[in-house]
Protein backbone atom coordinates (compact mmCIF):
# COMPACT_ATOMS: atom_id res chain seq x y z
CA UNK A 1 0.00 0.00 0.00
CA UNK A 2 2.89 2.32 0.57
CA UNK A 3 4.02 2.04 -3.01
CA UNK A 4 0.68 3.05 -4.45
CA UNK A 5 0.49 6.20 -6.51
CA UNK A 6 -1.60 8.83 -4.70
CA UNK A 7 -3.42 9.56 -7.98
CA UNK A 8 -5.14 6.19 -7.87
CA UNK A 9 -6.21 6.60 -4.26
CA UNK A 10 -9.20 8.39 -2.83
CA UNK A 11 -7.26 9.17 0.32
CA UNK A 12 -3.68 8.95 1.37
CA UNK A 13 -2.80 10.32 4.80
CA UNK A 14 0.79 9.61 5.78
CA UNK A 15 2.78 10.27 8.96
CA UNK A 16 0.18 12.65 10.34
CA UNK A 17 0.62 14.32 13.69
CA UNK A 18 -1.21 17.18 15.23
CA UNK A 19 -0.77 19.37 18.28
CA UNK A 20 -3.41 21.60 19.73
CA UNK A 21 -2.43 25.16 20.39
CA UNK A 22 1.15 26.29 20.49
CA UNK A 23 4.07 24.22 19.33
CA UNK A 24 5.76 22.13 21.95
CA UNK A 25 2.66 20.55 23.42
CA UNK A 26 2.42 16.82 23.02
CA UNK A 27 1.46 15.87 19.54
CA UNK A 28 -1.16 13.33 18.56
CA UNK A 29 0.36 10.88 16.10
CA UNK A 30 -1.92 9.02 13.70
CA UNK A 31 -1.47 5.80 11.80
CA UNK A 32 -1.38 6.15 8.05
CA UNK A 33 -4.72 5.89 6.29
CA UNK A 34 -4.97 4.89 2.68
CA UNK A 35 -8.22 4.18 0.87
CA UNK A 36 -8.50 3.19 -2.76
CA UNK A 37 -11.08 4.86 -4.96
CA UNK A 38 -14.44 3.41 -4.05
CA UNK A 39 -13.00 1.67 -1.00
CA UNK A 40 -14.13 1.97 2.61
CA UNK A 41 -12.47 2.21 5.99
CA UNK A 42 -13.53 2.49 9.60
CA UNK A 43 -11.37 4.34 12.12
CA UNK A 44 -12.41 3.00 15.47
CA UNK A 45 -11.36 4.16 18.89
CA UNK A 46 -12.65 5.37 22.27
CA UNK A 47 -13.53 9.00 22.94
CA UNK A 48 -10.43 11.12 23.26
CA UNK A 49 -8.41 9.00 20.87
CA UNK A 50 -8.36 11.79 18.30
CA UNK A 51 -10.83 10.32 15.81
CA UNK A 52 -12.53 13.63 15.15
CA UNK A 53 -9.20 15.41 14.94
CA UNK A 54 -8.11 12.93 12.27
CA UNK A 55 -11.31 13.50 10.36
CA UNK A 56 -10.87 17.29 10.56
CA UNK A 57 -7.27 16.97 9.39
CA UNK A 58 -8.36 14.92 6.38
CA UNK A 59 -11.17 17.40 5.66
CA UNK A 60 -8.67 20.25 5.74
CA UNK A 61 -10.37 21.90 8.70
CA UNK A 62 -7.17 21.52 10.73
CA UNK A 63 -3.55 21.74 9.63
CA UNK A 64 -1.30 18.81 10.59
CA UNK A 65 2.02 19.41 12.32
CA UNK A 66 3.71 16.75 10.20
CA UNK A 67 2.74 14.43 7.41
CA UNK A 68 0.84 14.79 4.17
CA UNK A 69 -2.75 14.39 3.03
CA UNK A 70 -3.83 13.68 -0.51
CA UNK A 71 -7.45 13.44 -1.51
CA UNK A 72 -7.98 12.11 -5.02
CA UNK A 73 -4.37 12.95 -5.69
CA UNK A 74 -4.68 16.57 -4.57
CA UNK A 75 -2.50 17.66 -1.70
CA UNK A 76 -4.66 19.20 1.02
CA UNK A 77 -2.38 20.03 3.90
CA UNK A 78 -0.16 22.52 2.14
CA UNK A 79 -2.93 24.29 0.24
CA UNK A 80 -4.06 27.73 1.30
CA UNK A 81 -7.15 27.99 3.41
CA UNK A 82 -9.30 29.20 0.53
CA UNK A 83 -7.94 26.44 -1.69
CA UNK A 84 -8.69 23.87 0.97
CA UNK A 85 -12.26 25.21 1.20
CA UNK A 86 -12.55 24.73 -2.56
CA UNK A 87 -11.05 21.25 -2.58
CA UNK A 88 -13.23 20.24 0.35
CA UNK A 89 -16.34 21.40 -1.48
CA UNK A 90 -15.37 19.62 -4.65
CA UNK A 91 -13.74 16.39 -3.40
CA UNK A 92 -15.15 15.63 0.02
CA UNK A 93 -18.62 14.99 1.36
CA UNK A 94 -19.12 15.17 5.12
CA UNK A 95 -21.81 13.69 7.34
CA UNK A 96 -21.65 14.49 11.02
CA UNK A 97 -23.45 13.04 14.00
CA UNK A 98 -25.17 16.38 14.30
CA UNK A 99 -26.62 16.78 10.86
CA UNK A 100 -26.57 20.58 10.83
CA UNK A 101 -28.99 21.11 8.05
CA UNK A 102 -29.68 24.82 7.57
CA UNK A 103 -32.80 25.25 9.69
CA UNK A 104 -34.35 28.03 7.66
CA UNK A 105 -34.11 26.18 4.35
CA UNK A 106 -36.25 23.37 2.96
CA UNK A 107 -34.73 19.98 2.27
CA UNK A 108 -34.42 20.85 -1.41
CA UNK A 109 -32.90 24.28 -0.70
CA UNK A 110 -30.36 22.68 1.62
CA UNK A 111 -29.18 20.61 -1.32
CA UNK A 112 -29.15 23.59 -3.66
CA UNK A 113 -27.12 25.59 -1.13
CA UNK A 114 -24.63 22.74 -0.91
CA UNK A 115 -24.23 22.75 -4.70
CA UNK A 116 -23.71 26.52 -4.64
CA UNK A 117 -21.16 26.42 -1.79
CA UNK A 118 -19.24 23.54 -3.37
CA UNK A 119 -18.91 25.54 -6.54
CA UNK A 120 -20.89 23.01 -8.52
CA UNK A 121 -23.42 24.17 -11.07
CA UNK A 122 -26.75 24.38 -9.29
CA UNK A 123 -29.06 21.76 -10.75
CA UNK A 124 -32.51 21.67 -9.32
CA UNK A 125 -33.39 18.55 -11.27
CA UNK A 126 -30.51 16.48 -9.92
CA UNK A 127 -31.26 17.63 -6.36
CA UNK A 128 -34.94 16.73 -6.71
CA UNK A 129 -34.00 13.44 -8.31
CA UNK A 130 -31.69 12.63 -5.46
CA UNK A 131 -34.27 13.36 -2.78
CA UNK A 132 -36.94 11.45 -4.65
CA UNK A 133 -34.50 8.53 -4.99
CA UNK A 134 -34.11 8.52 -1.21
CA UNK A 135 -37.85 8.39 -0.71
CA UNK A 136 -38.12 12.07 0.22
CA UNK A 137 -40.23 13.20 -2.74
CA UNK A 138 -42.97 14.34 -0.39
CA UNK A 139 -40.51 16.25 1.81
CA UNK A 140 -38.83 18.50 -0.76
CA UNK A 141 -40.23 21.72 0.66
CA UNK A 142 -40.22 20.83 4.32
CA UNK A 143 -37.76 22.44 6.66
CA UNK A 144 -35.48 20.19 8.74
CA UNK A 145 -37.61 20.73 11.84
CA UNK A 146 -40.54 19.06 10.10
CA UNK A 147 -38.51 15.99 9.16
CA UNK A 148 -38.13 12.81 11.19
CA UNK A 149 -34.64 11.87 12.34
CA UNK A 150 -34.39 9.23 9.61
CA UNK A 151 -35.57 11.67 6.94
CA UNK A 152 -33.09 14.28 8.11
CA UNK A 153 -30.33 11.68 8.01
CA UNK A 154 -31.16 10.93 4.42
CA UNK A 155 -31.18 14.61 3.48
CA UNK A 156 -27.77 15.02 5.13
CA UNK A 157 -26.36 12.03 3.25
CA UNK A 158 -27.87 13.28 0.00
CA UNK A 159 -26.27 16.66 0.66
CA UNK A 160 -22.87 15.04 1.24
CA UNK A 161 -22.95 12.89 -1.90
CA UNK A 162 -24.74 15.24 -4.31
CA UNK A 163 -21.52 16.60 -5.80
CA UNK A 164 -20.11 13.09 -6.42
CA UNK A 165 -17.19 13.53 -3.99
CA UNK A 166 -14.17 11.23 -4.18
CA UNK A 167 -14.27 10.82 -0.43
CA UNK A 168 -17.21 10.60 1.94
CA UNK A 169 -16.36 11.33 5.57
CA UNK A 170 -18.72 10.35 8.37
CA UNK A 171 -18.17 11.26 12.02
CA UNK A 172 -20.11 9.03 14.43
CA UNK A 173 -23.04 8.67 12.03
CA UNK A 174 -24.65 5.88 14.02
CA UNK A 175 -23.68 6.52 17.64
CA UNK A 176 -26.92 8.11 18.76
CA UNK A 177 -29.18 5.72 16.89
CA UNK A 178 -30.86 2.49 17.93
CA UNK A 179 -29.76 -0.73 16.28
CA UNK A 180 -32.33 -0.69 13.53
CA UNK A 181 -31.64 2.93 12.57
CA UNK A 182 -27.89 2.51 12.89
CA UNK A 183 -28.11 -0.36 10.47
CA UNK A 184 -30.21 1.70 8.06
CA UNK A 185 -27.76 4.60 8.13
CA UNK A 186 -24.76 2.36 7.68
CA UNK A 187 -26.40 0.66 4.74
CA UNK A 188 -27.36 3.99 3.24
CA UNK A 189 -23.85 5.37 3.61
CA UNK A 190 -22.22 2.36 1.97
CA UNK A 191 -24.86 2.24 -0.77
CA UNK A 192 -24.58 5.90 -1.56
CA UNK A 193 -20.79 5.77 -1.53
CA UNK A 194 -20.80 2.93 -3.97
CA UNK A 195 -23.52 4.43 -6.11
CA UNK A 196 -21.74 7.75 -6.47
CA UNK A 197 -18.23 6.42 -6.67
CA UNK A 198 -17.03 7.77 -3.33
CA UNK A 199 -14.60 6.14 -0.94
CA UNK A 200 -16.08 5.98 2.57
CA UNK A 201 -14.29 6.79 5.79
CA UNK A 202 -16.22 6.45 9.03
CA UNK A 203 -14.72 7.45 12.36
CA UNK A 204 -16.60 6.03 15.31
CA UNK A 205 -16.49 4.42 18.70
CA UNK A 206 -19.61 2.45 17.76
CA UNK A 207 -18.74 -1.23 17.92
CA UNK A 208 -21.62 -2.02 15.59
CA UNK A 209 -19.57 -0.68 12.70
CA UNK A 210 -16.84 -3.21 13.31
CA UNK A 211 -16.33 -5.68 10.57
CA UNK A 212 -18.65 -3.89 8.19
CA UNK A 213 -16.12 -1.95 6.10
CA UNK A 214 -13.20 -3.15 4.01
CA UNK A 215 -10.53 -1.76 6.32
CA UNK A 216 -10.43 -1.02 9.98
CA UNK A 217 -7.91 1.14 11.80
CA UNK A 218 -7.85 1.30 15.56
CA UNK A 219 -6.89 4.41 17.55
CA UNK A 220 -5.67 4.25 21.15
CA UNK A 221 -6.71 6.70 23.79
CA UNK A 222 -3.83 9.08 24.31
CA UNK A 223 -2.73 10.05 27.75
CA UNK A 224 -3.32 13.73 28.40
Amino acid sequence: MTATDPESLALSAASLSYSHGSAGTTALAFPDVTIARGGSCAVVGPSGSGKTTLLHLIAGLLTPRTGSIHVAGRRMDTASQRERDRLRGRLIGIVLQQLRLVASLSALDNLLLAQRLAGHPVSRESAVERLVGLGLGHRLHHRPRALSQGEAQRVAIARATLGRPALLLADEPTSSLDDANAELVLQLLTEQAVEHGAALLIVTHDARIRGRLEQEIGLERVAA
Binding site: D85, R86, R88, I94, L101, L117
Partner: peptide
Protein backbone atom coordinates in the same frame (compact mmCIF):
# COMPACT_ATOMS: atom_id res chain seq x y z
CA UNK B 1 -22.71 28.61 14.57
CA UNK B 2 -23.07 24.93 13.84
CA UNK B 3 -24.84 25.59 10.56
CA UNK B 4 -22.22 28.09 9.53
CA UNK B 5 -19.44 25.64 10.37
CA UNK B 6 -21.25 23.01 8.33
CA UNK B 7 -21.41 25.46 5.42
CA UNK B 8 -17.63 25.64 5.62
CA UNK B 9 -17.59 21.83 5.42
CA UNK B 10 -19.66 22.11 2.27
CA UNK B 11 -16.94 24.27 0.73
CA UNK B 12 -17.98 27.80 1.73
CA UNK B 13 -15.08 30.21 2.21
CA UNK B 14 -14.77 32.40 5.29
Amino acid sequence: RGELAMMRCLGASR
